[in-house]
Design a protein around this nucleic acid. Structure first.
Lengths: 117, 117
DNA sequence: CAAACATGTAACTTAAAGGTTACATATAAG
DNA sequence: CTTATATGTAACCTTTAAGTTACATGTTTG
């Protein structure tokens, strides 16, 4: 999970994900041609994305095909909607009201701190 | 948006967010007491979280109160669900039901928050 | 086989992240 | 007023991130 957050923290890597999503089966060179930086730099980003399982690859001869994998993003999505579900739900009622509600409800409730991934 | 991703990429900062969410109005010292590292290190993390607008603060005398702000996370959520809507589409129905369930449950479940100092 | 092509590895540089200790300021309380 | 408390700033250190150039390997194709 930490790998996923780290991988997504870099703008170039998010752009790579966007590109691969829109160009399934694309090659290393296809990807690196989209960016100003060198192919080596892109390959490092690809390695990080692949380690985070955000990209999966298939080697066919000398060609390496890349595919976007949404599952780690879904896992983050699930994490946040679990951790912050009340806040996500609050989109219907507004943040301010929710904070006021929390402060009001505070006295008779137990503290609970959840572990972080 | 980049600030938000960067801020969320660090495990300590995610844990800080969890703590502040569960302990609205908490102070710098309340937060730093939860961690092994120094108060100064925590203050740097707080500054980053505040710059990313994930935390909002209110100064009252010598005390600085911290509050979690979900809006940047909602924006990320919206970005990804927009960017990857095709991939998320299959999950949307489940999500809708989940939110409805959460809203329903919220009325009966005790909330897990406690006000600080 | 030789040349072009696609990808992979190594070594290095620079900048930024994440932490430390020491010191400074401002408010509350005795 | 003096002391304890809560937060803020400065200077520094170490590790990691992110990029570079140069070279190596493996695979098609003429």
């Amino acid at each position: 999970m930490d790998d996923t957050f780290s991988a997504l923290a870099n703008k170039t890597r998010r752009q790579i994900l966007d590109y691969v999503k829109n160009n399934p089966a694309c090659l290393v060179n296809d990807i690196s041609n989209q960016f100003a930086m060198s192919r080596i730099a892109i390959m490092k980003h690809l390695k990080i994305l692949e380690s985070a399982n955000l990209l999966v690859t298939e080697k066919v001869g000398k060609a390496k095909h890349h595919y976007f994998n949404v599952i780690p993003i879904q896992q983050i999505y699930d994490r946040w909607t679990d951790e912050y579900s009340r806040f996500m739900a609050s989109r219907l009622t507004g943040f301010k009201n929710q904070i006021e509600q929390e402060l009001k409800d505070t006295e008779n409730e137990p503290k609970q701190t959840k572990k972080c991934s």
